[in-house]
Nucleic acid binder design. Structure first.
Lengths: 245, 245
DNA sequence: CGTGGCTTTGAGGGAGGTCAAGCGCCGTGG
DNA sequence: CCACGGCGCTTGACCTCCCTCAAAGCCACG
């Protein structure tokens, strides 16, 4: 069954309090900022990490909301986006477990975010976080490296938006999403896709119709199989060739 | 005369050695990483900063070149880009004085860069730079902030590429370029544009013909005046409205 | 079984790409 | 000094890919 992990997450109840933080067993730790803390030195991390939980569809925050915290996604998928007055929406990135949210200017969020599936986050209050970094430069170092990495990803997204055809965009989306899942331990050519067609369209600068048509066309060519909750790459090489990184 | 600054830079001779670093009088200092150093504490900065100079058209480095340094642009304009096997090119950003270059993965440059005008850079050897940051966390802090800021700019570029029409893209390009120049002290509605039409096209995901047609159309509507080395916004409000940030 | 949200598919149109020609500017050489 | 050639830019005509509008299918839920 495809997307077992995601579906499981959706069906679990979402409790907003009373959850214990357990950094030692956190699946997201090693791919997140938290990896800057040694396993035998998790106490200060655990002390300032506060878990929050959102159901699918809930809004984490809106653009321009005052921001006094940073977050690490520990479970679920988040979309980060900006909306125009006329309703156009650009999804800037999909956040998976391990991803860090700190994009803000002058204490306000630069983008809106909401939960695509059920989501759990670790919340770090800005002041505490700053204090910890003061004493542990390598945490800041780690944060900087992650941000630089994120910048490179953003650049590749730009390439996709600016230079690729609809088919290439979809192929690129599938391949990069597969690799992102792999990073959080789900390495497979069966790619869970919890987001709606509209999300994919707004991520790639296309319309839902074009997304749908393109997926159908790839399926007709026996390169993929479209499933209710995701896509299976039956000819990964061909799809990767289309993605043309 | 429009673009006096840029033209001056182009006509100056480019000497590759024998230039003294003078951080105290560097125009780019206050907007770059170097702002993390106090005015009375510029010696360590000056000690590790090595100036390099490139003529218009020269390549600074190519994608995948090993990278053992970071750079700050002190004069001129640089384009950062990636090229595909089939010749498509996406320009990821234009770097102006004060901008910092450190985008790399695993010691290799993630993108290619070359000089659009004559360019001078301050080079910081990776090892020295890392050593300084070790002792001065606030430099790292500054670097992180700049990188986060850059990430936000990249996201806005993505929005431009994904959601905007040709006219909106051009308007956005003009407005943001104007504001970038303003940041390095050249605040005016007469915008120097040292880059070629092809550069603009590859930056916005358009063709040179569309760039040209769109500029002509904006000029016909009396919103701008197209000049040999740049563009003058005759109706800044209208152009800003089109840019629809 | 009906309703509503999401997706797929089809038909037609338009924004921007492609191809091609011509212009303006500048450096070079006769 | 002017003719020539090259490069970058502009403009026009045509075409294509993707968007728009519309309808129908699928599935979950009441």
């Amino acid at each position: 069954m495809i997307c077992g992990v995601t579906l499981l997450a959706i069906t679990q109840p979402c409790r907003h309090s009373g959850i214990r933080v357990d950094c030692a067993h956190c699946k997201a730790r090693l791919v997140s900022v938290c990896a800057a803390f040694e396993p035998e030195d998790l106490d200060p991390l655990q002390a300032m990490a506060h878990p929050i939980c959102f159901s699918a569809g809930e809004t984490l925050f809106l653009e321009n909301d005052p921001s006094d915290a940073a977050y690490t996604v520990t479970e679920g998928v988040v979309r980060l986006y900006r909306i125009f007055a006329d309703g156009r929406r650009q999804i800037v990135s999909f956040l998976l477990p391990g991803d860090f949210i700190a994009a803000e200017t002058h204490g306000r969020h630069a983008f809106s975010a909401d939960a695509i599936t059920q989501v759990t986050l670790c919340r770090f209050a800005q002041t505490q976080f700053a204090a910890v970094m003061e004493r542990r430069p390598h945490v800041l170092q780690r944060l900087y490296e992650m941000s630089a990495q994120e910048l490179i990803r953003a650049h590749e997204h730009m390439i996709a938006l600016g230079q690729r055809s609809a088919t290439e965009k979809i192929a690129w989306f599938l391949v990069t999403l597969r690799d992102k899942w792999a990073r959080s331990g789900l390495a497979s050519n069966e790619i869970p896709i919890p987001m709606l067609r509209q999300d994919i369209a707004d991520y790639l600068g296309l319309t839902i119709e074009t997304v749908s048509r393109t997926l159908s066309s790839l399926a007709r060519d026996k390169k993929i199989i479209v499933m209710p909750q995701g896509v299976k790459l039956t000819d990964p090489k061909a799809v990767e060739r289309l993605a043309a990184t």
